[in-house]
Design a binder for these strands. Sequence first.
DNA 1: TACAACGTAA
DNA 2: CAATATACGTTGTA
Length: 869
Amino acid sequence: MPPKRKATVSARGVGSAKRLASGTATPRSRSIGSSDEYTEDGEYGNGSEADGPPPAEERRRVSNIQKAVKAMSVENLKSRGKGPTKSKHEATASIGFSNLSYLDLKPDHEKRPLWVDAKTDKIILENFSPFASRAKDFLTTIAEPLSRPAYLHEYRLTSNSLYAAISVGLEAEDIVDTLDKFSKTPLPEETRNFIMNSSKAYGKLKKVLKNSKYYLETPENSILQELVQDAVISAHLVSSSKDIITEKAVKKGPAVIPGTREAAGLIQQVDRQNNAQSDGGPSGHANDAGAGKDDEMFLATLREEDDDEDEDQKHIHSVEILRDSASLERVIERCWEMGYPVLEEYDHENDEKNATLDINTTSKTRLRDYQETSLRKMFGNSRARSGMIVLPCGAGKTLVGVAAACTIKKGTLVLCTSSMSVVQWRQEFLKWSNIDPDDIAIFTAESKQKFSRSTGIIVSTYSMVTQTRSRSYDAQKMMDFMTEREWGLMILDEVHVVPASIFRKVTGQLYTHCKLGLTATLLREDDKISDLNLLVGPKLYEANWMELSQQGHIATVQCAEVWCPMTTEFYQEYLREKSRKRGLLYVMNPRKFQACQFLIDYHEKRGDKTIVFSDNVYALQSYAKKLKKFFIYGGTGQVERMRVLENFQHSEVVNTIFLSKIGDTSLDLPEATCLIQISSHYGSRRQEAQRLGRILRAKRRNDEGFNAFFYSLVSKDTQEMYYSAKRQAFLVDQGYAFKVISHLNGIENLPGLAYSTAAERRELLQDVMLQNEESWGVEQIQDDLFSGRSAHPKGKVTALAKKGPKRTAGMLSDLSGAQDMAYIEYNKSRNKELKVQTKHNPLFRKIERDREKRKAARLEQLKEVRSMR
DNA sequence: TACAACGTAA
DNA sequence: CAATATACGTTGTA
């Protein structure tokens, strides 16, 4: 049995955060309140550097990388191993890898691109090696990419990644041999054993759906015997059928993915199989200078695979699992623990029971290389394998989904996060495939269609499917329709949301043979991301952002972090304030506002379309109002939203809009080319990546020398610095370099620069400081009004009560105030005022509700404690 | 339109 | 360190 290893998808952030912290790329001043950087008059402390990438910064970055590379050299490693403990520690900390000095180098190590560290199962790739591109293809197949910046890439071998490799058709021996070939040192024994042992049982155990029942299936009876003995597993099996069912196996042929060149008859069958393995990188290998004997040998190794038409697979043994999602999940998890990863495969070609859907990609549809590669991983051996495909925003995830559906040709279910993307998915299906519009239906609150024929596609949202409360009649009808049939494929858009407690129910509620998860950011800040392995399947493919942008599939982005010093007044208050208000202070920092104004002006003059993001609604509104730009946030009505977006895309006048986190996901604005972040949610890596994604599909990306811009405005010497480092971790792993700009050239000369006098700044500060208290005051007033009113009988309160809400509304618009007040401002109509008389104020109802909830929870706990005694 | 319920963050 | 508090966003239903 292989040693137990925890799947490590969620661990990726840890390493990168450490790397960032320990520095090298951009030196950061983290010293909150260090007075040497902060000058009294609020001027920029080190304003000597020029606009754009400061050369000094750049040089330091490069030299740091060279240092890191040097640190990996033989001499260094050898000497360090014998050196004092302290330097050993330094080495480990500064690069983030463990000491490799105990390894013996092969004589021709310089040509070989890999370091393999047996202790951490990490593999380090020297991306500057002539063989790097080949090694990369291989590594993405067998290991998890942890980080892929410019020079040193980091991968990790996990049981999960090996399992993915084996299920694509590689064999353990091939992996070991090839790894050894690329490695600078002889492959460590532990690593060799790990690969051989853990892959022994891989691909042997499958979860299959037959007649709306789930089974565990394997060709090796002994495995099943062992599993049935296990207490956990047997508890979740259908008790009546604990006996093992044995059947004859069915033979199958290879699959063809529509939309590929091969489907168009351009490539021979034989070549295809080789390509599937060796052509992993979209770049191809034509530009490999160092191609030589080694290459030939390497390619030969890879070609050998795939003749695993196993003759011994004559019988299949299976047991039935209980149907609820918890049981399914537990059984699969337990099998993993016992060393038998469960594969979910769908033999769609031989499925006679479910009707075949008439769908194909249109003749014009051509998949890009990387899309093809990802699909090959899914349809590796003529069956459809469940799993996840990770592609950056704007890289055509939808097309991958459509192509997958076209390959399986069975009833398909698409689940997305919002009803907006539901409509988009349907449009994409109609665009890329020849599906009959009658066969593709939408299931949302507004529209509950069905397809008329025996099978088809339904697009819906997660919340629609996982509704716990009562449903409308139509919705219930529709759910019944969906739960009682078997689906060939379920596409899970934005799959990173699935592990949430509610959404994970979908996998148990709906019968699907195969699941495909799509996402750009396989990240959550909690530890639930690894649950996806059990819920949908392994990660089949993850694209490299840098490579896609080099090939022009997504825009090239210049990322910059603009350091804005706090003004004296603001910083004093910042130091004094606790917690909540601090955030407001560093967002409203006048220097930040000026930087924002300057950048907007600069990019408008260049003809860019700019989006400004702010999480804080107060800041959003005051920035936008001061700069006279449009803004959209949660409280903005649907009509207003559409109007602003329409104008932004097509009008020459509207070149800048402000968005709250409403714009983080599923907003398609191909016009946008520049992005400024003024406030963001703590250290959310996912948010950062998704915001960057807004400009990746820029229409103009293929123009000569085109660059999109991504700015993060950060108030210097505040907590923001720390968060911003965390946020960037993911993008840095993807290879993005953040430049630090500490002075914007020419900002002093910008006409109409806001807050340029101390008086103005003081006024702003007062507004900001008042903001919280006033909003508190308003609450008090409402409380008074509310309690006063409710004391009176309904009819009597007329004039006085009517004045109440109006007065608060007036105060609010003056202060452009607290977030909760959006409600009042939008409810100025007479109707509302009358309603307020009879109804409790929503704010207080909510508070009351929450209080009750907490009380109930406490009582519940008390009861539990008592019953335990 | 209001409400309820939920997700996402450190 | 965990559970909690919080603000903002979303959805579907009445």
